[in-house]
Design a protein around this nucleic acid. Structure first.
Lengths: 152, 152
DNA sequence: ATCCTAAAGTCAATATAGTTGACATGAGAG
DNA sequence: CTCTCATGTCAACTATATTGACTTTAGGAT
């Protein structure tokens, strides 16, 4: 679902009431991630790397198995991006003192910096939009998104 | 960025103010497309096919070059899903009467039906969420999403 | 007729992101 | 010493994309 960076929102006939909203969900996701993806690409990273960094930042000392579960991917799919992050020393892994079976993951300083900067790009876009509609509008946005997200 | 169907929203520490919103964008997109993707998979189709059907439904007699532009993909990337849709007779193509160079695309009855049903799944999720917050909340959601979408 | 161009189609190589299956390693637990 | 759990790795495959090079199809211009 990746698009050329400069691609404008297409203007299509609206066949149904909610077509505009449907299209906004698509372009909204893209709009939020556009700058973050460009920043990550400059670092030689991409979305899967960011997802790993994002989760580990919020769950320091997470085991690899738990990370797999949260991301919802196979361990084989995790392998490549995770190893790159370890090689680049954005993450470190160590056996836990008690649970020697598990390896615990943690961000390094450099990892924290990249995670924060990538996520900052996404939060900046959200902040500008929320500022424009004010607190009640932002709350309504959250309420709508929660209902949609919990559709699963 | 696809996830297992039954995957619950992970509960992560919020490091920043807008982390919750950031995660909602991710899970919102997934929540909206979950049932549509399941329906499409049952038809042996997937997201790229739906995107083609969606656009052609709203731009009958669109030329292939314009479709490429709107979707923002290369013609090689369009080739496979487009040919499948033609083989399955969900789309028909014909040279236009005057502009014989262009091939114009159009949905067949079967194509219209599948496009409508897939999009219905997405619109249903949106409708339920909008109903819950009422018209002002829905308008706020749209306003936020427009600002985010136009970030490009 | 011949040449030029635009639109579409095709072929090959590559990248990314994922899958399943099979098997190996490292480290307690009995 | 063996069993099991967590992790790691190898191979084969699928899907979705890319860029580059080339062909085909059909009109337009001279």
């Amino acid at each position: 679902m990746s698009q050329a960076a400069g691609l404008h929102r297409a203007s299509l006939e609206k066949l149904h009431d909610l077509d505009a909203a449907l299209e906004l969900m698509y372009y909204g996701w893209r709009g939020m991630t556009l700058e973050a993806d460009a920043y990550l690409a400059k670092q030689g990273l991409s979305r899967p790397h960011h997802r790993i960094l994002y989760v580990v930042a919020r769950r320091p000392d997470i085991a690899i198995g738990s990370l797999i579960e949260i991301l919802g991917v196979s361990k084989q799919a995790l392998n490549r991006p995770l190893n790159l992050l370890l090689e680049r020393k954005l993450l470190i892994s160590q056996r836990s003192p008690e649970q020697h079976r598990s390896k615990l993951l943690r961000l390094t300083g450099a990892g924290q910096r990249i995670e924060r900067r990538a996520s900052d790009h996404e939060r900046k876009v959200l902040r500008e939009a929320f500022d424009r509609v004010g607190a009640p509008g932002a709350a309504a946005w959250m309420a709508v998104m929660e209902t949609i997200a919990d559709n699963s």
